[in-house]
């Protein structure tokens, strides 16, 4: 009896940092934010209970909210699939040329490891500048320059292209997955005379589906929370015409520029709900498209 008690206590001793951290930095703050979302609060005076007013304002009055939700959804639905397709393509290239020269690999890894830094956002801002290389390239092709910082959709495209360029972490995970596919499968397919296209759709893609699911979930959540590039590229404003006002940036502005903590909390909870719905849909549909190998064969 005493030994059993001791075991439980030892277990909790080891995980206690997580339990304490979860309560102090996640659960209590999350609860507080739920409460604050029903209040008007500016950090300096006491929170004033206003019921559902924040949510009402969000849904029915705040056109900026809908704008930020719209650009975020475009960003997620264009950016994530493009990035994953790109990541898979590069991972397959690297996998076939597995013993290729180091420099070749490094060229592909590099964007992934530096992708999130402020320096890269600054760089992106400049290659899309009015006299940047993208416009120069368009001019050489006989096309007109695009004023990337004046057109809302052009500016959003700038962010999407940056997110595609940061394909690296998903590529690494794909690469690990590709290495786990047994070679015998491909050999058998070769014997049966399957071409590269059939090998891809018949073996590679089905075998990778668990990893595709994992990557899609992680990347979708990550994309919803994108902050740094939008903040740097639009200099914190979300312009032009709110074209790059991603959800996180708008939340940040509501909370820490206008000090409307109640509204920002309501936005955070809406985001949690939206992300949960997406994750739930992905998991629910996964049984139709994710292929799990049965154990023990």
């Amino acid at each position: 009896m005493r030994a059993a008690w001791k075991n439980h206590l030892t277990g909790y001793a080891f995980i206690s940092p997580f339990v304490i951290g979860f309560l102090a930095f996640i659960l209590i703050p999350a609860g507080a934010s739920l409460y604050l979302s029903f209040t008007s609060y500016d950090l300096f005076t006491t929170p004033r209970w206003i019921g559902l007013d924040n949510y009402k304002e969000m849904f029915f009055q705040d056109s900026k909210y809908w704008q930020s939700l719209k650009v975020t959804l475009i960003y997620v639905f264009l950016g994530v699939p493009l990035r994953l397709a790109f990541a898979l393509l590069i991972a397959m290239l690297l996998n076939t040329a597995s013993k290729a020269v180091g420099i070749y690999r490094t060229v592909y890894y590099l964007p992934s490891i530096i992708g999130g830094s402020v320096a890269v956002s600054i760089m992106w801002r400049n290659i899309y500048g009015d006299e940047g290389i993208i416009n120069l390239l368009l001019n050489t092709l006989g096309l007109d320059s695009i004023r990337w910082f004046a057109e809302p959709f052009a500016a959003l495209w700038m962010l999407i292209s940056l997110s595609v360029w940061q394909f690296g972490s998903s590529m690494l995970i794909f690469l690990a997955g590709l290495k786990n596919i047994p070679n015998e499968l491909y050999e058998a397919a070769n014997v049966d005379g399957a071409g590269p296209v059939r090998r891809f759709f018949g073996i590679t893609l089905p075998m990778l589906t668990p990893i595709i699911l994992f990557n899609t979930i992680l990347q979708t959540i990550g994309a919803f929370m994108t902050f740094t590039p939008a903040y740097i590229i639009s200099k914190g404003e979300g312009g032009p015409l709110d074209g790059t006002l991603l959800y996180s940036l708008y939340l940040f502005r509501q909370g820490f520029v206008y000090f409307d903590m109640g509204y920002a909390s309501a936005m955070a909870w809406m985001m949690l709900i939206i992300v949960s719905i997406f994750t739930a849909i992905l998991f629910a549909t996964s049984k139709f498209w994710v292929h799990y190998e049965s154990k023990g064969d």
Binding site: I26, A30, I217, I221, M225, L251, A268, W269, L272
Partner: peptide
């Protein structure tokens, strides 16, 4: 899987 934004303001 929890978005960091949810705890940003209360933290």
């Amino acid at each position: 899987m929890l978005p960091h934004d949810v705890t940003l303001v209360p933290q």
